[in-house]
């Protein structure tokens, strides 16, 4: 593999990691507050559709993104209503949200655009354009570092840079602010937070709302930056890979970056090569597809570094009477 190919694969890794990273950080906020969320997939899908639809109609990618975020947050509100207010089963609620999104997006797309459950292709201002960082063209001639800067670091769309900036921001919010401390506490021991006079319900709704916001951006990125328009089931299991990445990262922001880059890299490899020949063994493409899930199961099994979820995760909080 030569340098140019490696650079192309890494470049595609960055682009494919972005939605995973956004969704993974979304799940991180939610699960750190004690609300399990297997509805990341559905929220991204809903956001992808509404951002593409509104961007197409209005011609503005920003309006599209707002619509996507609103749609994703509406599903978050539903998840909050079911799992926080009515203390329902968070996992079942997540499953319902995934199906709701899978069905509604196609249903509405068919009604609005009559193109078999997709939106028309987005052009011009309805998409995020790649950003060329300063001096990228001038420095491209510098050996090795030049192409890395010009092709790998420069030339991505705005949500890509936003997603990577979210990693330190998430770390800072969770571990250096009062809100973050409380958020983590409510995921470990909600009774203690309640005793301190802080609203468990309020904190959890805030976490779920942040989750909706980030999933919304992830979905908008899929439909208006990575691809040009919405197609049926376009998230293609990314919500679940993000969930896997979250466990792989043991619910920590920097590890989340690493695991999302790893899983994005696996996707980039699987996209480029059908089968990988390693001397006598040939790895089939299906193995690459399954690898993120296999790695997650191995991590969950606790044979390689144990992943311990937030202690109060999945448990509805009941105030003592």
């Amino acid at each position: 593999m030569d340098f140019a190919t490696a650079l192309q694969i890494l470049d595609s890794t960055v682009r494919l990691s972005t939605p995973l990273l956004l969704a993974c950080l979304a799940g991180l906020f939610s699960e750190r507050s004690g609300i399990f969320d297997i509805g990341l997939e559905g929220k991204m899908l809903m956001a992808a559709f509404f951002s593409a639809a509104v961007a197409f109609v209005s011609g503005s990618v920003w309006l599209g993104m707002l619509a996507g975020i609103a749609a994703s947050m509406a599903l978050s509100a539903l998840h909050g209503l079911a799992s926080i207010t009515f203390r329902g089963n968070q996992l079942i609620s997540g499953v319902a949200i995934n199906f709701l999104a899978a069905g509604l997006t196609v249903l509405i797309a068919q009604d609005w655009f009559s193109q078999g459950g997709r939106t028309p292709s987005l052009i011009g201002g309805a998409r995020f354009e790649p950003i060329t960082l300063p001096l990228a063209d001038t420095l491209a001639g510098v050996p090795i570092l030049g192409p890395i800067y010009a092709e790998l670091i420069s030339g991505h769309t705005l949500p890509v840079y936003f997603a990577f900036a979210c990693v330190p921001a998430t770390w800072w919010i969770l571990f250096r602010t009062r809100f973050g401390l409380r958020l983590r506490a409510v995921g470990e021991n909600p009774a203690a937070v309640d005793t301190a006079g802080i609203s468990v319900i309020g904190l959890r709704y805030a976490a779920v709302a942040i989750c909706g916001l980030l999933c919304g951006i992830a979905g908008a990125y899929l439909a208006t930056a990575l691809q040009a328009g919405f197609i049926k089931d376009m998230t293609a299991g990314r919500g679940y890979i993000a969930l896997a990445a979250l466990i792989f990262a043991k619910w920590r922001p920097w590890y989340a970056l690493m695991s999302c880059l790893l899983f994005g890299f696996l996707q980039a490899i699987a996209l480029r090569y059908q089968n990988i020949e390693l001397g006598p063994i040939t790895l089939p493409v299906q193995f690459m597809d399954a690898l993120p899930y296999i790695l997650t199961v191995v991590i969950l099994a606790g044979f390689v570094g144990r992943a311990i979820p937030p202690r109060a995760g999945g448990e509805p909080y009941m105030k003592e009477r």
């Binding site: 079911a82 329902g88 079942i92 199906f99 899978a102 249903l107 068919q110 459950g117």
Partner: peptide, 22 residues
């Protein structure tokens, strides 16, 4: 489209499962 059934399925899961307490 057939996806109407997926929506109905989602609503059934939502109301009989997650929103049971409502």
């Amino acid at each position: 489209p057939r996806e109407l059934i997926v929506v109905i399925q989602a609503l059934v899961i939502l109301f009989t499962g997650a929103l049971d307490n409502m």
